[in-house]
């Protein structure tokens, strides 16, 4: 069962990479990178259960957080063109 899950995740990774490479718009690429990060979290979880090293699950959780913060930063960059700007309407 882990083998099937692992293979499915790897195939999804291929699809995400293809979209990042082809991606006509910026948003395709951002979404593909976000999905790729999620797939990395999942494949680490599969590896953790397959090999019985459940301490790797902590790393998968940290990856999920890093992925989220990174995507928020990228989107903020695209909304404001820089990072030093605050929320909406504020200079």
């Amino acid at each position: 069962m882990y083998t099937a899950a692992g293979l499915a995740i790897l195939i999804t990774m291929v699809l995400a990479i293809t979209r990042t490479l082809l991606g006509p718009t910026v948003y395709d690429r951002i979404l593909a990178v976000n999905m790729f990060g999620t797939k990395t979290v999942l494949i680490i979880a599969v590896i953790a259960f397959m090999s019985g090293r459940t301490d790797l699950l902590d790393i998968a959780l940290a990856y999920a957080l890093i992925n989220f913060i990174g995507i928020v930063a990228v989107l903020k960059f695209f909304e404001y063109g820089e990072f030093s700007r605050g929320g909406r309407g504020r200079p």
């Binding site: 990042t20 490479l21 990395t40 680490i44 590896i47 790393i59």
Partner: peptide, 15 residues
């Protein structure tokens, strides 16, 4: 964006 994916991949290899 591709660099970000590259880092995630190498982190996966390290794991």
């Amino acid at each position: 964006m591709l660099f970000s994916i590259f880092s995630l991949l190498s982190a996966g290899v390290f794991t």
